[in-house]
């Protein structure tokens, strides 16, 4: 990898701009999932009463908000990464993937920071973990491939069409409700379940709760379906990226 060092420097560059003030940087990483968690807990306790199984509401929502916030943060952080680097793209060659990639890495650092709050919450609510925690690794691999595909696709299209940013805001809002963040799919019919599983985030959120809160194994068919979906998506979006990256400098 001849441009490995460049990627490192890019990540470090984003990181140092973001975390120049470390307290603000860490606060920024946790404020979003925590405030959402508190809001959802409040709304579904006092305004609309919703049961979330036997789990305390804060951990139920936070388990879903953790991967969700990473996904949204990474996509938002990478969409304008290429179109916003006009002075670089038109003057100097480097693999353009590095731009969205470094945005994803910074979102991943945020995820790690927000993850430490998760551990605190689990302790606080006395949730005992067992070996099934290890399943979080394949779940997050699916999450990362999915995030990568969406980021590559939208960051490259955004070079051509500046209205992509608007479309993303709208899409993310739709996806928030199409992902079982504020609900659980347990009681749905198989048909509806299958429909929801076309969204890889459904697999990620449902199974994060399953392996951490319930201490159960991953559902294998759900994992294989989600993995197949994200791999196909990655293949297609990377192909599109490679195909149009050559014109970036001319159209940006």
């Amino acid at each position: 990898m001849p441009f490995k060092d460049l990627l490192i420097v890019f990540i470090w560059r984003q990181f140092s701009v973001r975390y120049r003030n470390s307290v603000l940087g860490i606060l920024w990483a946790i404020i979003q999932p925590i405030s959402m968690m508190m809001l959802l807990t409040f709304v579904f306790t006092y305004i609309i009463q919703v049961k979330t199984g036997s789990y305390p509401k804060p951990v139920f929502y936070y388990s879903a908000l953790l991967p969700w916030t990473f996904f949204v943060g990474a996509v938002n952080g990478s969409v304008k990464s290429i179109s916003g680097s006009q002075s670089l793209v038109t003057k100097i060659y480097f693999p353009r993937e590095i731009l969205p990639l470094s945005g994803i890495f910074v979102a991943f650092l945020d995820l790690l920071i927000a993850g430490s709050i998760y551990i605190v919450l689990l302790f606080y609510f006395n949730i005992s973990l067992n070996y099934t925690v290890i399943w979080i690794i394949p779940i997050f691999i699916v999450l990362i491939i999915f995030t990568l595909s969406v980021s590559l696709l939208f960051s490259s299209i955004n070079v051509y069409y500046k209205d992509v940013g608007l479309i993303i805001t709208f899409l993310m809002r739709l996806m928030f409700f199409a992902t079982p963040i504020i609900y659980s799919i347990d009681k749905l019919s198989l048909k509806l379940k299958l429909l929801l599983f076309l969204n890889p985030m459904t697999f990620i959120v449902e199974n994060t709760r399953r392996v951490i809160l319930e201490g159960r194994d991953i559902v294998l068919w759900q994992f294989l379906l989600a993995l197949a979906l994200v791999l196909i998506l990655f293949h297609v979006s990377y192909k599109i990226f490679i195909k149009i990256e050559k014109d970036f400098a001319d159209v940006i």
Partner: peptide, 17 residues
């Protein structure tokens, strides 16, 4: 936003160093 010294590194790696 980065300092001159930091830019030596970003620019240098872009040139393949």
């Amino acid at each position: 936003e980065l300092t001159g010294r930091e830019n030596i590194y970003t620019n240098g790696t872009m040139l393949g160093m």
